[in-house]
Design a protein around this nucleic acid. Sequence first.
DNA 1: CGATTAGTTGACTAATTTATTCGGGAATTA
DNA 2: TAATTCCCGAATAAATTAGTCAACTAATCG
Lengths: 158, 158
Amino acid sequence: MRLTTKGRFAVTAMLDVALYAADAPVTLAAIAERQRISLSYLEQLFGKLRRNGLVDSVRGPGGGYQLARAPQDMTVADIIRAVDEPIDATQCGGRENCHDDRRCMTHELWAGLNAHIFVFLRGVTLADLVRQQRPKDHEVVVMQDHRTLPSAVAADVL
Amino acid sequence: MRLTTKGRFAVTAMLDVALYAADAPVTLAAIAERQRISLSYLEQLFGKLRRNGLVDSVRGPGGGYQLARAPQDMTVADIIRAVDEPIDATQCGGRENCHDDRRCMTHELWAGLNAHIFVFLRGVTLADLVRQQRPKDHEVVVMQDHRTLPSAVAADVL
DNA sequence: CGATTAGTTGACTAATTTATTCGGGAATTA
DNA sequence: TAATTCCCGAATAAATTAGTCAACTAATCG
């Protein structure tokens, strides 16, 4: 699980679709305008999102993109994984230069850490983000274990 | 909280220090050899780790690096934050082009998500990783809430 | 049908980040 | 003094991210 701005763009764009594609599909041009993301970059991202079955596309006038599944069945992990194709992270591809007996210390390490981060991000659905977006009060994302956290912490996190 | 290979390298290197600098400091050359990371890259990373007070350096023969604090007082979040300096992630720097009334949707979104990921990574200490490293059985990182997870999940996570 | 709207694709470029290489320092130990 | 090791900066290569462009296909509307 990698976490870069690319994945963030994708989640932001998907949230835009979730918010605005209720009746009619939304065009990439509209997303680009609202979220200030370059149209061509969105084209690349939505190409992947479509091929991964997260959105459906409608061509022609009045066309655009819609969610392929209900927002509560779509997680942040799904989105990030769709656009941010993974790296090996264990730098031994599972086999090669695992050397000096205690081979590939990092393998187990990152496999475990990856799994945890993945489980965490899989616990946040697009519906959660939509819910957070609607009300004006400063509520915060709900995690899979239903604990919350004051968004004030965010300041010194970045 | 960004999550890239750079941060992984840093965590791996710090884990190496935690494992091998029990009595004497470890040299970057030794880490480079064991973990297959370029020496000069390690120098850059450890420059940041040192300036952020995570390691102490000892010059001259027999010198090297040691942990500045006990492993149980050093978290993965500390390490990643030290080397992976943050980006704005809200693409409005907190002020500027937040436009069209519902300004900067992404701000709240990523602030919240960031906070959660940060809290999670702050819950994993270097001591946890060391503990995981020692035994031969396939145990897994312990999270801050002390739940565990089979590392089998890691496969379809990447 | 013809025009327009939008998705689809691929190639290409620029900017940024990641990783490495090199060359010299300065501190410490023996 | 000589060897070791951290320290620093510049230069470079490789990879990723972000954006641009152009040609094309499909669908709709008049």
